[in-house]
Write a protein that binds this DNA or RNA. Structure first.
Lengths: 377, 377
DNA sequence: AGAGTATGAGAAACCGGTTCCTGACGCCAA
DNA sequence: TTGGCGTCAGGAACCGGTTTCTCATACTCT
């Protein structure tokens, strides 16, 4: 039916078939009212008959706009992005834009390459948790309208969850449960969000009169959380840790045993809880765990995760709306837009037990007793 | 420093600054060796100094290619896509292409629009679980190279997991545990994959001498799975169901109580187990549940999900490699490419208990006793 | 030294749209 | 009847690259 599939139909084909000038076809198709009703109708009919489809590539050359926005994420596998993308997509669609998504696989090099390739092809960019340097971000931002998420860079508009208040919520809640010593499982090394969340936690803990130590950095993944469990077990079982350390370092068991763990994100928290459970550490009986994000699945892990819920959908939508404002040349606030967080209390946190729990011996890499398994898994 | 940010630097700017013709600049930048070393070096240096960035939009007009592939997914929020996207991305990057991802939010209308907008802008399309009609798919496929995933359409190349064998694996395993009656929680109505998986399950069950009923359709989400729980509870508790039904329908409890549930996908299975647990139905003691996909999180739900693992990463990679073959004009096999599945046995399945479990009264919407909660949640 | 060839670079066409400029035609009023 | 104005459509330039064609120059060979 379609034959040898020669080449796309152009406005020139339509024009000659119609007996009008190409410019008339262009007007008829893209500027309703700018051409007489009769001509317009004839052009439309011929275009339909010939199966004309506009070639946006060519169209965009003179127009200098593509109708496309790009969002760059560090890892599509991280469920945290799904709602952000959804929110961004809806905002973009509402404004008549198409959102494309690109994954840089946690690599700054790839991110830079992608940006160079993408930037000229889109009307604007959303950088979700970028790994680039501030200088690199500013350089790209000079070429194309851009907003960052979860990242503050001078002169570049940004959208953030309220890291400070979120951590305050977590800390106040833990304080109310009697916790006094925390451990923070840190996010990846070069990450602005990781640094900011740590700072926020530290400050919140300080004003609550709590002590907090940081371990890490760890990747923002389930595997990263599992990895951190080794270090944490050491913390929680000082008597055991001593044998792994030079005895001269500290004498006797540590007095400052942490009772609550705050991770950089939910994925880490889930991996951490998994690994702790496997080692016989009971959550929340022996130690409470608080995550961050409220990803899909944070409610079906066991125990269900207490977490600081970031307004992911809104973050995505706000980012795109903001970006479109920049694109339209409207003045944008210099200060970051900060969206509120919400503490979601579930089952991974509990009061500090009056008497320190007597810990069982650790059996690394081996699931503990069947009874234990039933209970925790 | 950057001034009023006039307009992008073009090869014409570079040319006049260099004192050479624009065509020379073009050659120097894109056809190494086609220009003398001295000129080339000078052009490169001026280009760098002026901050020249090629405008791919303009470049692609005569070239008729964009170096971009698009992948359309029905819902980025479904974790099943993450590995597929990752696989596709890696295959695309290896071949020097950029992959962009678009979400159609489970809407056929939006999918069609997007396709029309996207098709002319990319060199090829991957449709992951499309909701379009066969005719619509073929129409788009005629305009642009395309492959479908999880969907077979005449004349359009496709990549699939081995639905038939996957269901056989599940059925054989369940048969080995003593199960004889199954219920299938069906996927969404218009979905090829849903229809195919149901057919595969029915056939597999038939050859194993098992009975299987289908309920649904339900959305392929956690909410969909939760929804299905109501109908399933009715199945599992005929004595209770009878009160909801006209008593004349059937006399006494049903003899054909199902002992195993097979869902369309993991998300449904997880929602289903959640809802069942909340109603006091114990998994796998009272009923076994088998999912499909092996998504992230299917191992941290409780009980950890037994599931048919689709080779998601490979599916994505194979789709792109196949698409590039089509793009390059190489002949492609007419038959779908089928990738093997693997049954992942975890904790949501178990042997049929010798004596039918005595069921507790249902308390809808209310969590059962604390002891129960500890055990199942 | 003169003729032939290879090499480098400029001019111009092209890709497929959009848009500015211009002119033709028709209608209305004076 | 003529002048003026508004509507509609054609011609051509333009967007920023690529590519073909052509020509000038330099180098080689006899």
């Amino acid at each position: 039916m379609s034959g040898p599939e020669s080449r796309d139909v152009t406005i020139y084909d339509v024009a000659s078939e119609c007996g009008v000038a190409p410019s008339t076809v262009s007007r008829a198709l893209s500027q309703p009212g700018r051409v007489s009703a009769r001509t317009s109708q004839r052009v439309h009919e011929v275009a339909r008959r010939l199966g004309y489809r506009s070639a946006p590539l060519a169209r965009h050359v003179p127009e200098q706009r593509t109708g496309t926005l790009a969002m760059i994420v560090s890892d599509v596998g991280n469920p945290v992005y799904a709602p952000m993308v959804r929110g961004a997509e809806e905002a973009a669609a509402t404004a008549g834009y198409t959102l494309v998504l690109c994954d840089v696989v946690e690599s700054a090099v790839r991110e830079r390459q992608l940006l160079d390739q993408l930037a000229p092809n889109v009307d604007g960019l959303v950088l979700a948790t970028s790994r680039l340097s501030d200088a690199a971000i500013r350089m790209v931002a000079r070429r194309r309208p851009m907003v960052t998420m979860n990242r503050v860079t001078q002169q570049v508009p940004s959208i953030l969850p309220d890291n400070e208040h979120g951590m305050c919520q977590a800390v106040e809640y833990l304080a109310g449960l009697g916790h006094r010593r925390l451990i923070h499982v840190a996010g990846p090394a070069g990450s602005w969000a990781a640094a900011t969340r740590w700072r926020a936690l530290r400050d919140a803990a300080a004003s609550a009169g709590m002590r907090v130590r940081r371990i890490g950095p760890y990747p923002p993944t389930v595997a990263g959380g599992q990895e951190s469990a080794a270090a944490i077990t050491e913390e929680l079982r000082p008597e055991r840790a001593a044998s792994n350390r030079r005895a001269a370092d500290r004498a006797g068991p540590r007095p400052d045993r942490a009772t609550a763990l705050v991770t950089y994100n939910d994925l880490q928290a889930i991996g951490l809880i998994q690994a702790l459970s496997r080692q016989g550490v009971r959550v929340p009986a022996e130690v409470s765990v608080v995550g961050w994000d409220n990803i899909l699945g944070s409610d079906w892990c066991v125990p269900a995760l207490t977490t600081v819920a970031a307004p992911l959908l809104d973050l995505g939508a706000a980012a795109v709306r903001h970006l479109l404002a920049v694109t339209a040349g409207r003045a944008v606030p210099a200060a970051p837009i900060v969206l509120p967080t919400r503490l979601l209390v579930r089952d991974s946190t509990g009061p500090v037990s009056a008497a320190p729990v007597r810990l069982e011996p650790v059996r690394l890499g081996v699931a503990s007793s069947p009874v234990m398994d039933r209970a925790v898994q």
